[in-house]
Design a protein around this nucleic acid. Structure first.
Length: 512
DNA sequence: TTCCGACAGTGGGGTCGCAAT
DNA sequence: ATTGCGACCCCACTATCGGAA
């Protein structure tokens, strides 16, 4: 297979908005790919690199390389070049990778360079990633899509599943069940505005802990710990390994959250937990100075039994039989949401979780199965939302479908002396209509434009929602908003009445 | 015919580790 | 020693397609 063909298909996929047409184009390509090249072709067309990290980013790619006149590269040559880049280590590695980039880019045509750039930066922008590729593999092989999807979620590898079903058809799916020791795509939660909105049927209301999601596998004495993206972080979490080894089963898969607690058992900030779990060097010292706890909320397999397709109530029973209460998340079961006082109890549990310092709750249907890799309605998270009225200090030109639109707002709060201090940005919550409106309005207020950031006269106030504050060394305010999103423009509100840093801190529960 | 679930895209901030300065 | 970059944690929200109702 030549690279030119891949770049062409990718461009055609990007050019159509129809998902079924995208699927068709990918399926045609997969069907005519040699089995030996399939893993690489599938990875590229779903926007991933088999090598994972290359150590090559926008900075290394900034200086353009003259393109080749004629296409000549094969997929195999590209894969070899990426493997070489990923292998470069130590002093001089940046220059070494840059030389390899120059070699590869120089052999690529302009269209091929565009495709390679998207691959390396993780921004293929063809409107088709894993989910569409899964459908295309199903179509190319004639195997039902649900079976392919399940195999991918349980094995974590579309490439392997595709190679198997394209060669062996539906029968090949039997080789892709849950394997203890091999990570599974975790089930995710969607967002909900309130407990009442989330608790529509019999459900469990569980504390939502603000830490790192972990999947813990044990086979005999071998324990492995994986992140949400299936990275192996076993060596960073000796406490979790030790706990798993002490549980009364030889073989299991647990789903939970890791976080650091203070002396009184209250959760430390996400920043502290993330720093500890992110530390790879001298884990022993890190574990001593900032030990972490783990709280499990689900079990996917235990001994010989696979539990994914059982209802949540049954899985919770199996979890309680395996894991002591101190290592399980707190929960409250609402068997009949319509019953007298049920809503109050659920709300009460949320209030208690918040009082204990946690993020909120997750509401889970008691009869729901474990839908690996899906962000379905079976799990709904509920977190309190804060709002602040902030001043627009500037905006950044958007990319992709936001090209030509002012998108990312720079947000400021007042200080006692009347000055304005920046404490974050946001690009979320904007409809196309708002984008068009703010591009024009901010254009009128513009004081400067360096092609990236447009600074404006601080005259507009926006209502911004956020989840809380974080310490910040980037912003003069010393804090920044977590997950800030635009709610609406407050043209009725003068800048002099916008929130101050102190009032934002107070709103977020930071005593200040 | 309308509704709604699932996806992709558009970026946010922090922290760590490593290489370059 | 400090700085910049890449990778990876956490993530919200809107537009769109296409199957479900």
């Amino acid at each position: 297979m030549v690279l030119e063909e891949l770049a062409e298909v990718s461009a055609r996929v990007a050019a159509t908005s129809s998902r079924s047409r995208k699927t068709e184009l990918l399926a045609e390509l997969f069907a005519r790919t040699e089995p030996s090249e399939l893993p690489v072709v599938i990875a590229y067309l779903s926007g991933r690199l088999p090598q994972g990290r290359l150590g090559v980013g926008w900075r290394v790619l900034r200086e353009p390389v003259a393109p080749a006149e004629r296409a000549s590269l094969t997929v195999g040559q590209v894969d070899t070049a990426f493997t070489e880049m990923a292998a470069v280590k130590g002093a001089g590695s940046q220059a070494g990778r840059r030389r390899l980039v120059e070699g590869l880019w120089g052999a690529a045509t302009e269209a091929e360079q565009r495709f390679l750039y998207g691959l390396v930066t993780g921004e293929v922008r063809q409107g088709a990633l894993d989910a569409v590729a899964v459908e295309a593999v199903a179509r190319a092989s004639g195997v039902p899509v649900a079976g392919v999807r399940r195999a991918v979620m349980l094995s974590g590898s579309l490439e392997e599943v595709a190679t198997a079903v394209l060669a062996g058809g539906e029968e090949a799916l039997s080789g892709f069940g849950l394997v203890v020791g091999r990570p599974v795509q975790p089930m995710l939660a969607s967002s909900s505005g309130s407990v009442a909105e989330a608790a529509l049927g019999p459900c469990a209301v569980e504390e939502k802990l603000d830490g790192i999601r972990v999947q813990v596998h044990r086979v005999g004495e071998r324990v492995s710990v994986y992140t949400r993206t299936l990275d192996d972080i076993t060596v960073r979490l000796p406490e979790v390994v030790e706990l798993a080894r002490a549980l009364p089963a030889e073989r299991f898969v647990l789903d939970g959250e890791v976080l650091a607690l203070d002396g009184e058992g209250r959760p430390r900030s996400f920043q502290e937990t993330a720093g500890r779990v992110g530390s790879r060097l001298d884990v022993g010292t890190a574990a001593e100075t900032l030990p972490v706890s783990v709280a499990f909320f689900d079990v996917l397999a235990v001994e010989g039994r696979e539990l994914l397709d059982l209802g949540y109530a049954e899985r919770a029973g199996a979890l309680a039989a395996l894991v002591p209460e101190v290592a399980r998340v707190r929960r409250s079961v609402v068997a009949d949401p319509g019953a007298e006082g049920a809503a109050e109890r659920a709300e009460g549990f949320l209030a208690e979780a918040l009082a204990r310092g946690h993020e909120g709750v997750v509401v889970k249907g008691l009869d729901s199965v474990y839908a690996a890799g899906r962000r379905g309605a079976a799990w709904r998270k509920v977190k309190p939302v804060r709002t602040a009225d902030l001043v627009v200090l500037g905006a950044e030109w958007g990319h992709g479908r936001r090209s030509g639109k002012l998108s990312n707002l720079h947000l400021g709060a007042r200080e006692p002396d009347g000055s304005l201090v920046m404490l974050g940005k946001t690009f979320k919550g904007m409809t196309d209509e708002v984008l068009a409106w703010q591009t024009e309005r901010l254009g009128e207020l513009a004081e400067s434009d360096d092609g990236h950031v447009v600074k404006v006269r601080p005259e507009l106030v926006v209502e911004v929602a956020f989840d809380g504050l974080q310490r910040s060394s980037r912003y003069a305010a010393g804090v920044t908003l977590r997950f800030a999103r635009l709610v609406r423009y407050r043209e009725d509100k003068p800048v002099t009445e916008a929130d101050s840093v102190a009032s934002v801190r107070a709103a977020a529960g930071w005593d200040g």
